[in-house]
Deep mutational scan, measured.
Amino acid sequence: MIVFVRFNSSHGFPVEVDSDTSIFQLKEVVAKRQGVPADQLRVIFAGKELRNDWTVQNCDLDQQSIVHIVQRPWRKGQEMNATGGDDPRNAAGGCEREPQSLTRVDLSSSVLPGDSVGLAVILHTDSRKDSPPAGSPAGRSIYNSFYVYCKGPCQRVQPGKLRVQCSTCRQATLTLTQGPSCWDDVLIPNRMSGECQSPHCPGTSAEFFFKCGAHPTSDKETSVALHLIATNSRNITCITCTDVRSPVLVFQCNSRHVICLDCFHLYCVTRLNDRQFVHDPQLGYSLPCVAGCPNSLIKELHHFRILGEEQYNRYQQYGAEECVLQMGGVLCPRPGCGAGLLPEPDQRKVTCEGGNGLGCGFAFCRECKEAYHEGECSAVFEASGTTTQAYRVDERAAEQARWEAASKETIKKTTKPCPRCHVPVEKNGGCMHMKCPQPQCRLEWCWNCGCEWNRVCMGDHWFDV
């Protein structure tokens, strides 16, 4: 396979590697080409510095992935760790964990309700045991953590790749202090920090972006993250068709209702045909949960890209028209025109101005929308079919299609509260000796007794199943 190397943020060049090629071997190839010592090179990928003893497969490097290699003399205490030698983080029983690669970060837990604080980093599902597709590297999971809308060759929703760059020099040479644990960490600028490894760059702020994971991409090709779309790892039924499908869209209502993408497309087109989208002054033209839940309008309007190009163009047109109407304007009634106009409040005669090729020149009556006339309008008909009709959803289907309910059931079956801080902690095999993952707590306690870890627990039921 081919990976592209950008040395000291210059133009990239291809390097041929195998899945079992080590990072140090990659350094040696680059060092020979650039005429520099291999031990002064640092390989940066997806916000993480890659260790010498890791392989291309370990690092989730795919065909035509772009890695950054910078030349920086080692500072005291760094060289041993980078070589894969006596790194205290690798000691058996050590409590410190390697910062998780962005290629394996899962933010789907952050669609849980606000009262489930902490689960994004504490609760991990076991539903990723799908067998890898044919042709994928051994052991590589097909679980997708992110979804994007690819405006490039795909023109559809695709699995996405999370990447990070330095907000100062805009190069992907920043190593994160810690990985993101929720969508806010990724979507809110300057929320996460790190250290830029580019020479002479003092940058410390992280800037995240997404790429389409279905095809090789260049540095400049980015895609918009659709953070309401998630892999259906909890096997929730769709609120409309009641099938279990994946991926799904999880509405931001209190129940976190789930809808499959085909039904979401149908829901949007139906509402669009009836012009029953909601115009929100802050958000724009949007839709609420299909069950009509309060405070559930979709905030990231790129989710409506699921409509496809033709329907999305209609959505944008109707949204612009609705904006004009909300501002007190009118639409030209001549067939084939429909231009938005903003006449004076007491102006009865409205002319669709033909300047700049935008208007048709038609003069019409503001009251009856017919060709302009003197005197009273002959008839004014009330528009028919403008009443909002509820999208029919079966109550039982709505009850079963809740992301929140599956989460709470998982928590109930696989977790116990920490005796000190009461945060839910998952036990997935292993011994009875637990350690609270909350940095402010870190209590060592017994899963069996529910009390602080002691010699009695150690001698009596340390390794009970």
Rank of each mutant, 00 (worst) to 15 (best):
440 Q>D: 15
60 D>M: 08
308 G>P: 12
301 L>E: 09
383 A>M: 11
316 Q>G: 07
346 D>Y: 08
299 K>F: 04
233 S>L: 07
355 G>M: 12
460 D>S: 15
310 E>H: 06
443 L>N: 11
425 V>C: 12
444 E>L: 04
48 K>W: 00
39 D>C: 05
341 L>E: 04
229 I>T: 03
425 V>P: 02
20 D>A: 08
212 C>I: 01
429 G>V: 08
140 R>Y: 11
230 A>T: 11
462 W>Q: 07
131 S>I: 11
301 L>A: 09
172 A>M: 11
406 A>Y: 13
38 A>V: 13
386 T>C: 13
415 T>P: 09
361 G>R: 07
361 G>N: 07
203 G>S: 04
274 D>S: 04
62 D>Q: 15
444 E>H: 15
82 A>F: 11
71 Q>W: 05
303 H>Y: 06
208 F>W: 05
51 R>G: 05
45 F>G: 07
378 S>W: 11
379 A>M: 11
301 L>D: 08
315 Y>D: 00
142 I>R: 10
151 K>H: 14
411 I>M: 12
306 I>D: 00
356 N>Y: 09
170 R>Y: 06
71 Q>Y: 05
343 P>C: 09
306 I>T: 05
242 T>Q: 15
40 Q>N: 09
135 G>A: 13
361 G>K: 05
353 E>Q: 07
137 P>Y: 10
142 I>Y: 09
439 P>D: 07
394 D>Q: 06
227 H>F: 11
376 E>P: 10
18 D>C: 09
75 R>D: 13
393 V>Y: 04
166 C>G: 02
45 F>C: 11
100 Q>L: 11
232 N>M: 00
67 V>P: 00
404 E>W: 06
198 S>W: 06
340 G>E: 04
292 G>V: 03
281 P>K: 10
186 V>F: 00
252 Q>E: 13
126 D>I: 05
393 V>R: 05
247 P>I: 06
88 P>W: 08
96 E>D: 11
187 L>H: 04
264 F>P: 00
74 W>I: 10
460 D>R: 06
93 G>K: 10
245 R>F: 03
102 L>T: 10
51 R>H: 14
306 I>E: 01
160 G>H: 00
109 S>E: 11
14 P>L: 02
435 K>A: 14
129 K>E: 13
375 G>E: 10
397 A>K: 07
326 Q>R: 13
391 Y>V: 06
123 L>H: 15
436 C>R: 01
23 I>L: 01
72 R>C: 14
144 N>R: 08
328 G>D: 06
177 T>L: 07
327 M>V: 08
233 S>R: 10
150 C>A: 00
220 K>D: 13
395 E>Y: 14
196 C>A: 01
381 F>I: 07
181 S>C: 07
35 G>V: 03
441 C>F: 01
280 D>K: 09
378 S>R: 10
434 M>A: 08
158 Q>S: 08
392 R>Q: 09
449 C>I: 01
230 A>Y: 09
404 E>V: 08
146 F>N: 01
67 V>Q: 01
71 Q>H: 07
427 K>F: 14
286 S>K: 00
229 I>R: 01
404 E>Y: 08
48 K>A: 04
204 T>G: 14
151 K>N: 15
89 R>K: 13
462 W>S: 15
198 S>P: 02
224 V>R: 09
450 G>C: 04
290 V>Q: 03
210 F>M: 06
385 G>D: 08
263 C>K: 00
17 V>E: 02
414 T>L: 09
134 A>K: 11
401 A>I: 01
453 W>P: 02
43 V>N: 01
198 S>Y: 08
128 R>M: 13
419 P>T: 04
193 S>Q: 12
242 T>G: 15
130 D>S: 11
335 P>L: 06
310 E>L: 08
313 N>K: 13
380 V>D: 07
171 Q>K: 15
30 V>S: 00
163 R>P: 02
298 I>P: 00
249 L>K: 01
89 R>P: 13
342 L>P: 04
102 L>N: 12
142 I>W: 10
389 Q>L: 15
53 D>T: 06
39 D>L: 03
100 Q>V: 10
202 P>T: 12
419 P>H: 03
30 V>W: 04
18 D>E: 10
282 Q>F: 09
114 G>I: 08
87 D>E: 14
416 K>D: 06
394 D>Y: 05
104 R>N: 13
306 I>M: 08
303 H>F: 03
241 C>E: 00
58 N>D: 15
158 Q>V: 08
20 D>R: 07
284 G>A: 03
320 A>W: 08
32 K>V: 13
175 T>Q: 11
266 L>Y: 10
91 A>P: 13
296 S>P: 01
159 P>M: 07
94 G>H: 13
266 L>K: 04
435 K>R: 06
104 R>M: 09
446 C>W: 00
170 R>P: 00
24 F>Y: 13
124 H>I: 04
398 A>R: 13
458 M>D: 10
66 I>M: 06
32 K>R: 13
311 Q>T: 06
123 L>P: 15
269 V>I: 08
198 S>L: 08
9 S>N: 08
15 V>S: 00
205 S>V: 15
260 C>K: 00
382 E>W: 09
6 R>W: 03
454 N>V: 02
165 Q>V: 15
9 S>H: 05
387 T>Y: 11
457 C>S: 01
10 S>F: 08
26 L>K: 01
272 L>W: 00
33 R>M: 10
19 S>Q: 13
162 L>D: 01
398 A>S: 12
383 A>H: 12
365 C>D: 03
419 P>I: 07
80 M>T: 11
377 C>P: 02
426 E>M: 13
241 C>T: 00
388 T>E: 14
18 D>G: 09
423 V>M: 15
455 R>S: 15
197 Q>D: 13
